[in-house]
Nucleic acid binder design. Structure first.
Lengths: 172, 172
DNA sequence: AGGATATAGTTGATCCATCAACCAAAGGTC
DNA sequence: GACCTTTGGTTGATGGATCAACTATATCCT
């Protein structure tokens, strides 16, 4: 029954008849990759669920509000905001529309560019993030910072930056 | 104008009147955390877009098909599948319904448990993953394995496992 | 000035993820 | 064997993400 039971790496060449076997991951590479993926999915799932439960903000809401409260006047241009979060402009537009409905944020016309629009954080938005931030930071500390040594955390940053560089080089 | 311009860490105590300042991240911690988040979002975005463009499978489809082709007979129980991917059963149910519509997968009644259901990979599903796997593995190698030294990859696995352990301990 | 092109942003369709509510069969327990 | 809880799974509503198509203003070129 091994024919029915092979994993992708074994069934592939059988099914396609390719002679050049692809460059599969070694067991160590595979284990590392799967560990990373699992961690990453569980971590972001947990953090966003905690954030939402504690404060009613999604991770996306939180990122937008941090970016806005960081900016002078609590305002940014739509596309500037989108680029700083590395979102597509369409996603930003939809998301800001939803946040505006909840009074976290408000659109304003842009005097110096007739096409443009400002996004401005409202008092309600400031309250929301002020309430959310300490709990969220505490969760990040508990789940990520604390279990790692400072050296490991530095390694994580280094590894992350190297992969991000590669993503930039190897443009879509 | 500094009142309008402070970041979350400075505005929080002003707005809430708390006297105990929360345990904010140090600059090094913050930089590491932001590097990680950025990498993680861009990497999964890129990988899933490439996968979809190359093979018409989403990352979720891919994970389901790998799990099924790994199992004896190419079949698994619904909840078993859900647990192995750490998905909620409702997500699994919806997703399997969509995959079944595309003939990647098929439901079967379960003889030994009247409530249960099997999910079985179809020939079409096997073809799809056989076509997708080499390209996807190549992308993972290019974007993650290659830019890291073996020691860094091992560190990434170690760090990931440590965080996952913490997630398990610190149960929701 | 007039036309081409680039930039800033919106919209609608479609698919995905999450939550709460629900249903039905299995397994105790008295 | 009637009741209760647990287990396995579905459903519908809602909000979020992505893609392609579109509008309107600005800018560049001659």
């Amino acid at each position: 029954m091994t024919g029915e039971n092979g994993d992708v790496s074994t069934t592939f060449s059988i099914l396609t008849g390719m002679t050049e076997t692809p460059h599969w991951l070694t067991p160590a590479e595979q284990q590392a990759w799967r560990s990373f993926i699992r961690m990453q999915e569980r971590l972001t799932g947990r953090l966003s669920r905690e954030l939402l439960a504690d404060s009613g903000l999604s991770a996306a809401d939180y990122a937008v509000l941090v970016s806005l409260t960081d900016a002078p006047g609590g305002r940014r241009r739509m596309l500037d905001l989108a680029r700083s979060l590395e979102w597509e402009k369409s996603r930003m537009s939809h998301h800001i529309a939803r946040m505006a409905r909840r009074d976290l944020v408000r659109r304003e016309e842009c005097a110096e560019d007739g096409r443009g629009a400002w996004v401005v954080v409202t008092p309600g938005g400031r309250e929301a993030i002020a309430a959310a931030a300490p709990l969220h930071v505490e969760a990040v500390r508990r789940l990520v910072i604390d279990p790692l040594t400072p050296a490991e955390l530095a390694m994580l940053a280094q590894i992350s930056d190297r992969i991000t560089e590669r993503l930039d080089e190897d443009a879509p």
